[in-house]
Every structure is written in structure tokens, then in C-alpha cells.
Amino acid sequence: MKLSEIKTILETVETVNFRLPDGSYVPEHFHVTEVGVVTRNFIDCGGTVRKEIGANFQLWDANDFEHRLKPKKLRNIIALSERVLGMEDSEIEVEYQGVTINKYGLDFDGKDFVLTVKNTACLAEDACGITETKKETEVKNEQSCCTPGGGCC
């Protein structure tokens, strides 16, 4: 989700809820402790120089059980960050504490903001000699067809 999308959604919702990938929710008393611009300059394993710019939100829950972040307050935090930091309309990454700091993508299901799983990937597969791997469903289908009566023989 891009910054412009969350701003539009915040105009229409009455509450700000974040649902984790496992279906549980970030506690209602969470705080947004950071809204920022994250710039990554790096070289991938194939030697290509890359630059990524993104928006970052950090969620945190404390013992402040009466705290409830309202949509207008989050809009104001975003607006201040845009003015002060010069934030662009970038993809949002959300940090939230698990066993360590977890990083998520962001989506909206019509009611709740949904923290989505992010994965690592090789950005230079052609330079590394990595061949495309089969999707998990393809592997499962192959395994199931080669069982007795599966029709593969």
C-alpha cells in the first residue's frame, strides 16, 4: 500500500485496527512511534547498484491501555512527516515487535489494515545462476499424482 492509499482510507474509517498475518490483532492501545522515510542503497549479488525509498511506520504497544489512535491523529502524523521529511508517495513498510522487529507490507480489507508477510528474494537470479523453482502448489500436485492410483504412471 502506498502512502496516498492509506491517507484516502483514513478519511473514511472510524477506527484504526491492524491485523497480523496470523489473524490476531495489534492491541487497540498501540502507538505509532515512528513515521519515516527509509532509503536503502545497496548492491545485489549480481553487482547491480540499487536504491529503494519507502515509507516506514513503527507500531508499538505499551502499558497505556486507555490509548486509542484515531484516524485523524494518524493523518496528522503522516501530514507532518510529509512536510518535515519530504516523504514521497512510497510503499509502506510496517515494523512491529515480535520475537524481534518484524517487517510487514500493508493492505486493507475494507475494515482493517492488514499486515502482510514480506519475503527475501534474489534480485539477480540470472547473474547467480539460480533456476526458477517450482511453486509449492506445483510440487504438491506432482507428489499427489505419483501416489498409487494418482495417474502419473
Rank of each mutant, 00 (worst) to 15 (best):
E136A: 12
N17D: 00
K103C: 07
D109Q: 03
L59D: 03
R83L: 06
G36D: 14
P148R: 12
I101V: 15
E125D: 09
R68K: 13
R50Y: 08
L115W: 03
H29W: 12
C128R: 13
E34A: 08
V114Q: 04
L74A: 10
K134W: 13
N119C: 12
S90C: 10
E138H: 12
F42M: 04
V49D: 13
C153S: 15
E136W: 13
C153M: 09
V117W: 06
C145W: 13
K51I: 12
R19I: 04
Y96M: 05
A127K: 15
K140T: 14
N119W: 14
E5D: 15
E88F: 01
L74H: 11
G151C: 12
G105F: 01
G47M: 01
K73T: 14
T131V: 14
K118I: 15
E132R: 13
R19K: 15
I130M: 11
P27R: 05
H31E: 11
T133S: 03
D22M: 07
T100C: 03
R68F: 00
R19E: 11
S81K: 11
N41Y: 10
L115C: 06
D109R: 00
K73M: 02
T8M: 07
F65Q: 00
G129P: 08
F57E: 06
I92K: 02
C128I: 06
V38N: 08
G110C: 03
R83P: 04
T12Y: 09
D112A: 07
T137Y: 13
K72T: 09
T147W: 05
F18E: 02
K103L: 12
A55E: 04
H67L: 01
N76D: 14
M1Y: 04
E91I: 02
R83N: 12
E95I: 07
L80G: 04
D22R: 01
F108W: 05
L69R: 01
V139A: 07
S144M: 14
F18C: 00
F42I: 04
C153K: 10
G36N: 08
T33V: 12
L106Q: 00
V26Q: 01
E28C: 07
Q58A: 05
L123S: 13
E5K: 04
D109M: 04
L85Y: 10
E125R: 10
T8V: 10
L74Q: 06
M1V: 08
C145T: 15
S24E: 15
A62N: 05
E34C: 00
C153W: 11
S81T: 05
K134P: 07
S90W: 11
L69F: 00
N102T: 07
N76P: 01
T116A: 05
Y96H: 10
C152Y: 07
K73S: 12
I77Q: 09
I77D: 03
C122H: 15
E11A: 05
G149D: 14
I130Y: 15
G151N: 12
D89T: 00
